[in-house]
Write a protein that binds this DNA or RNA. Structure first.
Lengths: 339, 339
DNA sequence: GATGCACATGTAATGGATTACATGCCGTTT
DNA sequence: AAACGGCATGTAATCCATTACATGTGCATC
């Protein structure tokens, strides 16, 4: 394996000079730089990262805590993170948390130290994981998508509350008054904020809150639980004419449920989803939903984390990316049969 | 940061002894081992991986070449790889190849050297990437799912040819005679082998090959291209009564196409998929398909790679995991209207 | 009792890059 | 002309764990 010493000999300079050319490049004569660069090329020299990392006291490893990345939402985020981290010269160590409830400070700290990661990105912390705050004082950390509201830890997300509100407002504009929500029993801030946005929209429109219209699906947004929640809602004496679901899969479940009960979406029931994952346009009716820029969230998380690792002055602590309401085929004006 | 010297002092032994306890553990008295272990615990010592890797001349990094891991197939494989590699103490550097055609030996070698990976797992090489053979002589490599048939490079996969044959045989048993296949223009061996299996089944049943029943979807198995391919097939003067699709998404596309043309699956048309990804049971009719153990493929890839990295004697070069034909709702006996 | 060997442990070299500090040269100032 | 300063470059210390080799102890053998 060719090392820096070989390059130095080949170029007729010292190792320090080679290193300087490879790193800072300042204070080295242009012609010397050129000599070094040629030698590097001739010998196909690649610096040994272990040695560099040892000396610089960094690992160039980023720890990513992700629950179940078969979920297209997370896999898109992951794509974004990986693409950027590769460009910045970081390896990503993906730790599959499966059930995010299993996370605690001890586990994370030990993971961190064992792998000597330079920083960490979480994809799904619970809104009450307060221990993150203390953790973040010691190590660079960025929370992506989900975050702890009360802790001043860097995070990047969309404005879930506003997006939910806009989505429900769309239903209201279409004449719906009995609007249900299928949220989840998980402890994600996004679920909470989407519920808040739903309530905001109702309140602003002067529609009084009806708790029987708030249904809870399982923590993992499973299709089956979406189906069940929708079934419960549609079995109500006064069934809703529209259902706002906090995830696309739940919405698909809701549509399946409606079909089973003889209701046609969107004519008999409007349904909206959240996230805009791939399969929202795989079956008719195509799902009306809120597009969340997953890939971009991933990209920006890594960029933000990098800013914090390198202690860039003025690195942001709160970033919100724009969402987009995508109107497709699962919402229609309320048929005025109940009026 | 506490280092080995601190532990040695704390335990009242030399650094060599500490290192021995941490690594080999042989030739050290049990009571000395205990002393060291206690000191490690007291000081929360974690060895510096850069230093260790530098000395041992390894990186504990595995390079994974994956195209588009939003595809649930790949994300499941990835899950498997990541879980195992974490346990073995490896970081995974996931390189998103997007379009696997862009891969060549130069890129891979440079990726490898730059990251000083200890080994590599490919998830989607083309069947004609012959350069892999030379590459594999220099570096530990395992091909997962897709591989180069002619090269004696370690690979792990399912028996795609047999699985396809069995799947088509199921259709034949149900009375179908005009059976079409939707394969892909990509250069994956799996596509080729699934086509071969399809032909095997026909031949064995004495059904003569009809090239007009072989349709090609796009390289990325997109839903839209599955739709289009099925549409072409169903527009044939003598339309097929069953379509074997080489991926689930293509099958879903085919079902969508059939619906659009007024055909009911499975009564008017049988459809089968391949892979058994999540959303095969998200909509009725649930898809009849071939279950491929993606997660297990990932797991075993990493284990196999580890065997090769550690030069375990007798490490396998060819592994085939069992598949399973899953009969659900998209296949039915041929209605004998054409007899 | 001297020699040799096995065994537990210690000492110091090693891996490859970075970087603080040292050196030497040249031009400027007084 | 002496002194100084800036600049390009070199020398050597450093990061921390591993491990070849050295040391020392105790036991068995002749």
């Amino acid at each position: 394996m060719v090392k820096i010493e070989d390059v130095a000999r080949e170029a007729g300079v010292s190792v320090a000079t080679v290193s300087r050319v490879l790193n800072e490049s300042c204070g080295v004569l242009p012609e010397t730089q050129e000599k070094v660069r040629l030698a590097v090329e001739r010998l196909h020299y690649e610096p040994n990262l272990s040695a560099r990392n040892l000396r610089k006291n960094e690992s160039r490893i980023i720890l990513i805590l992700a629950p179940n990345f078969s979920n297209p939402y997370y896999s898109n985020v992951l794509s974004g993170i990986c693409d950027v981290s590769r460009n910045l010269g970081y390896s990503t160590l993906i730790y599959n948390t499966y059930d995010s409830n299993a996370l605690d400070e001890k586990l994370v700290t030990s993971l961190f130290q064992k792998n000597r990661a330079d920083g960490m990105i979480t994809l799904a912390v619970n809104r009450d994981d307060y221990w993150l705050a203390q953790y973040a004082e010691k190590y660079p950390l960025v929370q992506c998508s989900e975050y702890v509201e009360e802790a001043a830890v860097p995070h990047i997300s969309v404005d879930n509350r506003l997006a939910a509100k806009e989505s429900v407002q769309h239903l209201i504009v279409q004449g719906h008054r009995r609007i249900a929500i299928v949220t989840s029993t998980n402890r994600y801030l996004s679920s909470t904020n989407r519920l808040r946005g739903y309530l905001d929209a109702l309140e602003e429109a002067g529609i009084s809150r009806d708790d029987s219209l708030i249904a809870y699906a399982s923590a993992d947004y499973s299709f089956a639980s979406g189906k069940q929640a929708a079934k419960d809602l549609l079995s109500l004496p006064e069934a809703p004419s529209a259902i706002f679901c906090v995830s696309d899969i739940l919405a698909l479940g809701a549509i399946a449920s409606a079909g089973k009960m003889g209701l046609q979406v969107p004519w008999d029931l409007s349904v909206t989803g959240f996230d805009d994952v791939d399969y929202t346009t795989m079956f008719h009716p195509y799902l009306t939903t809120v597009a969340v820029p997953c890939y971009e969230l991933g990209r920006r998380s890594m960029l933000l984390l990098y800013d914090h690792i390198t202690q860039k002055p003025g690195a942001e602590r709160e970033v919100y990316l724009p969402h987009q309401i995508i109107l497709r085929e699962t919402t229609a004006p309320q048929a005025r049969t109940d009026a």
